[in-house]
Amino acid sequence: MNTVLSVENLSTYFKTDKGIAKAVENVSFSLNKGEMLGLIGESGCGKTTVAQSILRLIEYPGKVVSGRVLLNGRDLIKASDKDLASMRWKEISVIPQSAMNALNPIFTIGDQIMESILIHENVSKREALKRTKTLLELVGIDGERWRSYPHEFSGGMKQRVAIAMALACNPKLVISDESTTGLDVLTQAQVIALIKNLQKKMDLSVILISHDLPMVTAICDKIAIMYAGNIVEWAPTEDILKNARHPYSQALLNASPDLGNPEKEVVSIPGSVPNLVNFPNSCRFHTRCPLAFDKCRQENPEFKEVRNGHYTACFLEGVGNHG
């Protein structure tokens, strides 16, 4: 299979008054063509920072300190601003977190979608408008509504406009950053259904950033679970559900109620997420891990493949069955 995106040992640090916050450290994963990867974690675990690092949107005081992000073989971290500008929208695009704020209130949505087409492709305005209408129809909005302003749309529709915009220049990779958070359950499901259907139709590669485990497990091919700046486990969805190896993944699976299994008792994870400023070089989960031992407090375990396509970072891996 051909890899669209491969992220290798990506680290992004933020300078703060109290020291360096290692917001993302040593993150590696890859994405094949037509694959949907769910990036999951609690708030503040670095999901969005990973996305921003991939897109080179990190600004001072943050900095990508090491690692490579290869998009179809080209390193985005080293690319010049000019190259990057030509790749954005055309090869990689984003559906932002809150579409309510992502659209400019004083331009019609047609103008906003057309803008990226006109910048990136050598087409006439008429052609761009025609494509805009097709895009709107694609996401289930009447094409003639390109004249409307964002405030004339409901939340779910604005989200659809944001999706149409992300697809404007036929990108190969779309990053959806919590794009359904804040919408109502049914609207959310409708938007997710739209993303999933478009992904299949256009053979897109999608990174779906979310904190909603049931939703992600339902529609993603692979899942990467993040905790406090590290990816702790990355595997096909099936493997995560049936055979999660990392204690955090297991705990996360046990923490949300399940409609299909009403008898299941939900268990919370004791403690809270550690402060990442000047975090010692230890396993980041050790403060909350029920199985932590001395080694976990002294070293951060390596992120390695434990089975075909199943990666995890835990010292207990290989010691015996801890699941």
Partner: peptide, 11 residues
Amino acid sequence: LDVSVRAGILN
């Protein structure tokens, strides 16, 4: 609240 704390409040 985050998923990991949510369960504690419910219980």
